[in-house]
Design a protein around this nucleic acid. Structure first.
Lengths: 233, 233
DNA sequence: CGCCGTATTGAGCGCTCTCAAGCTAGGTGG
DNA sequence: CCACCTAGCTTGAGAGCGCTCAATACGGCG
């Protein structure tokens, strides 16, 4: 892993900025947050950020790029626990155990900010608004990926696609985007095979619900997709 | 929901005490925690604690009994999100959204303590050790129920049984215990049918891995069960 | 251009579901 | 105390969804 000489220039370019997403960006926070970041790490595609054997010391905020956390089961299957995109934070699950539960690896070239847990705690103690924000973020993580709950493959994939479109662009959801991960990764996440993902995408395409060409997907009927996902509201 | 006249007498009888599990019980904490609890609620079996439409105001600590959180999908299936046992806290997932994501209902007669979120926040601000403890608890919740990850029904059930035995008795895991929930509930949680649960339990029994009679289960070969669950270490 | 990882597509199998019938335990009322 | 009732559990037979295995096509990158 490479260290960057100049850690951070501004809050807006910092992956730690989700702390600030919900409220007006506060110059004082910016300073506090920036000082909590130890260094930025440049990750090449497929490069590992941490493995379960590593003792927990730091949280990581994603500045740019995508990562996955995963474990390998007894039979050699890669079980992806979660995907992480720009502005999201990895490592919360390690607080309780003292070591990382999963392996984390980059899906693309990525830039992540390391936040030592001790700095993080100090930061929380110094600012009760940040504290609320952290509770908010952790709570949010408790609610993400709930589509693994769903029973059928169709439902899971539809819900995943919608979630993906919402998380890839924090500002506004896009109807068209590129998959940051392979069919195999999607399958490893949804507990389906790459073949099933491929077949389902073809099926959605035949039904005119999406267009898809390689990594590029476009939603033609978002409502229909939501119906399949079981998001009724 | 009934209100009790006398909210709390001592920390040891309080469901909020998981805050204190990890470190020496501190009299000062006890006082702070007890004052954060608004009231205790007595729940009858099958009674509802909250539904998704309810605005989020409070967290709930389970003093005694068991609860489940669930949602009903488009096709009418009850998807259980999580089970909660004595000493565990419900509601963290609602912090981000502002309302509860799931319905919560009692699996048995239960006693829960209501902790208004505003009290909770004050409590955190007043005590940085409690703050660490909360991060610990929320982190823990990020790591529970990971066996839904597993692919085969056998694996999921084995992992569920082990987790259950560890969570039902905080002090020391028991090899023998009674199921607090029905086969149907287990199935609704693991995304399997009650019939499949029944068949798998019979299969484990035939393999001399467990004994089972109605609600009473005993582990004969915990190692074997762990192997099936894929917990290799 | 040629290579290799990734994606698509097809055929057949197996695990889990569905549907259905019988069983058990516990509760209720006479 | 017993007959009955009901919800939950068990067990069986057949169907279907998603998996396995395999062949082929595609595309990025040297």
């Amino acid at each position: 892993m490479n260290n960057k000489a100049n850690p951070l220039s501004s809050c807006s370019s910092c992956g730690f900025s989700p702390f600030c997403h919900l409220e007006e960006v506060n110059p004082q926070w910016m300073h506090q947050i920036n000082s909590a970041v130890k260094r930025q790490l440049v990750l090449k595609k497929k490069q590992s950020l941490y493995v379960p054997q590593n003792t927990f010391h730091s949280l990581y905020a994603i500045h740019s790029g995508c990562l996955k956390t995963y474990e390998i089961d007894r039979d050699g299957n890669e079980l992806i626990n979660s995907f992480y995109f720009a502005g999201e934070i990895l490592g919360f699950e390690a607080i309780a155990r003292g070591n990382y539960l999963f392996s984390a690896a980059a899906l693309s070239d990525a830039l992540v900010c390391e936040i030592p847990y001790s700095h993080f705690i100090e930061l929380l103690n110094s600012n009760s608004n940040l504290q609320k924000q952290i509770l908010y973020l952790m709570s949010q993580q408790l609610t993400t990926g709930t589509y693994l709950n769903f029973v059928t493959a169709e439902q899971r994939l539809a819900a995943f696609l919608i979630d993906l479109s919402e998380r890839l662009f924090v500002s506004e959801p896009h109807l068209e985007f590129n998959f940051p991960m392979s069919r195999q990764d999607i399958g490893n996440y949804l507990r389906l095979t790459a073949e099933t993902i491929s077949r389902l995408l073809a099926q959605f395409k035949d039904s005119k619900i999406i267009t898809i060409e390689h990594k590029k997907i476009q939603f033609l009927q978002l409502d229909q997709l939501k119906t399949i996902a079981g998001i009724v509201k």
